[in-house]
Design a protein around this nucleic acid. Structure first.
Length: 438
RNA sequence: GACCCCAUCGUCUAGAGGUCAGGACACCAGGUUUUCAUCCUGGUAACACGGGUUCGAUUCCCGUUGGGGUCGCCA
């Protein structure tokens, strides 16, 4: 029989990385096994389950490339079936009605636990068991007639033909209840696999306070979906070789549940950033440019007078300095702004140093006469100047860098000059001289 | 508190009854370079503790400690 997994989020407006990691594992497992991956929207909490919240779930899945088979099943449409099963359980004597706690709220339907120990073999945690005394009866239909999570969850998994339930650690206790329900209903239970949580440095569940906890936040920060996917997949699972940077296909080929660890793990932002850089290298310059532009637009850094060719050249020039799409706008803004700010420290250290402005004037003269104006020609011209004046390249490079970019860090100077072009460079030198040349 | 789960470098992890306990990120040092980033080379760094079992345990068992999860007419 072909395997079938599902992702069953309750739309709350955000998709937590722990949840999406569960989705990734379900997806990886089903694709590896050649089975199906289904989506169920647990939208019975009408308060929170707005269309916008559902859209967030769908967008997160799409962004990460987690394609699901068939149409999503909306749990709210299954209410009648849930209640029907509750009636059957009542008829079988596997459930009973009671005004629980005598609250006067009316009778609810309570599932009766079988009164014996329950155990099962978790695909990642191994043998798990629970004493009968620790298993209490629980409500499956509220006194207002609405089905409770446990009922809907189990019934839906049965109707969807789910063979493997891969979910968060926080569901292990529920599993004993669910197993009892499968038996009472007379349906074969699926294989259960419980994933450890993603925690922060304090060992607590990872939250927005720890950096970013929702898929949307990583997207906004400019992370690549394949990098987030890769990193999350590796949090708790490893292919068993010293392989880390992998494509989706490679992970599908290597993924097995028995290689999933049962200990919680921390998400390391620094390593995620590195991972992002690795995947960025594997994308084309065009894609990187598009991503950078989108990030700049989001942050209000984009300006319509930026020529596409110039923008592309800047992206190429920045190269691996861009680890995140957002980096370009943050680190290379001076390329696009003629009124770029001067970094005070760099000015003091490189421009106001003894003789630095005189050198800049010499460079101004040399560059003014230079034709053509390329990486090679500017490089050669300044080396020649260094030679004739007996100065070190550092003395020439630093003031000029600050003069054209306002900062002491950035791409190679000559690449920068060539990308900016003669006219822009000369204008910037004049501006600098006007500002600091006295 | 009760029940359940977990425990290898700072972090993510590999690993086997006998290994120099491997890799990656980060970090440090050196090299390349006009800065930064990259790149190359090298380095620091771990089996939580205590008992067993065993010729031999980091690995198997028990306990301790520490951490986490669950104890709703939420999902």
């Amino acid at each position: 029989m072909s395997i079938r997994t599902r992702f069953a989020p309750s739309p709350t407006g955000n998709v937590h990385i722990g949840n999406i990691r569960a989705a990734i594992y379900n997806w990886l497992f089903s694709r590896h096994e050649g089975g199906e991956f289904l989506l169920r929207i647990e939208d019975t909490d009408l308060e929170r389950s707005t269309p916008a919240a559902v859209r967030t779930v769908l967008e997160s899945l799409a962004w990460l490339g987690l394609d699901y088979d068939g149409e999503p099943l909306y749990q709210s449409t299954q209410r009648e079936k849930h209640l029907e099963v509750a009636e059957q359980l009542l008829a079988k004597g596997a459930a009973y009605k009671e005004d629980k706690g005598g609250t006067g709220r009316g009778e609810c339907v309570i599932f009766k636990m079988p009164g014996r120990d329950i155990s099962f073999r978790d695909a990642v945690k191994g043998e798990l068991s629970k004493k009968a005394d620790d298993l209490k009866d629980f409500v499956i239909v509220r006194s207002d007639g609405s089905p409770v999570f446990h009922l809907g969850n189990v019934v839906d998994d049965i109707t969807m033909g789910i063979t493997h339930v891969i979910r968060g650690d926080d569901h292990v206790e529920n599993t004993f209840k669910h197993l009892a329900m499968y038996e009472a209903i007379g349906a074969p239970p699926p294989v259960f696999a419980h994933l450890p949580m993603i925690v922060n440095a304090q060992g607590k569940p990872y939250s927005k306070r720890d950096g970013a906890a929702y898929v949307g936040e990583f997207r906004e920060k400019g992370f690549l979906p394949e990098a987030l996917f890769n990193s999350l997949a590796l949090l708790g699972w490893s292919p068993g070789e010293d392989r880390e940077v992998m494509t989706r296909e490679e992970m599908v080929a290597a993924f097995t549940l028995d290689r999933v660890r049962s200990a919680p793990s921390q998400l390391d932002m620094t390593k995620l950033l590195w991972m992002n850089g690795e995947h960025l290298k594997r994308r084309g310059l065009d894609e990187i440019a598009a991503g950078c532009r989108a990030a700049m637009e989001r942050k209000g850094q984009w300006r319509d007078d930026i020529a596409p060719a110039y923008f592309a050249a800047v992206v190429a020039c920045m190269g691996e300095r861009v680890k995140l799409f957002g980096d370009l706008g943050d680190q290379a803004g001076f390329f696009f702004d003629e009124d770029f700010p001067y970094d005070e420290k760099s000015v003091r250290k490189r421009l106001l140093k003894e003789g630095a402005l005189d050198i800049l004037r010499e460079e101004q003269a040399v560059l003014e006469a230079l034709e053509p104006f390329t990486t090679e020609s500017t490089d050669a011209a300044l080396h020649a100047l260094a030679e004739t004046t007996g100065r070190g390249m550092g003395e020439l490079v630093h003031p000029l860098r600050v003069a054209v970019s306002g900062t002491g860090v950035g791409p190679g100077l000559f690449d920068m000059l060539a990308v900016m072009g003669k006219e822009r460079v000369m204008r910037r030198i004049r501006r600098t001289l006007d500002a600091y040349g006295g």
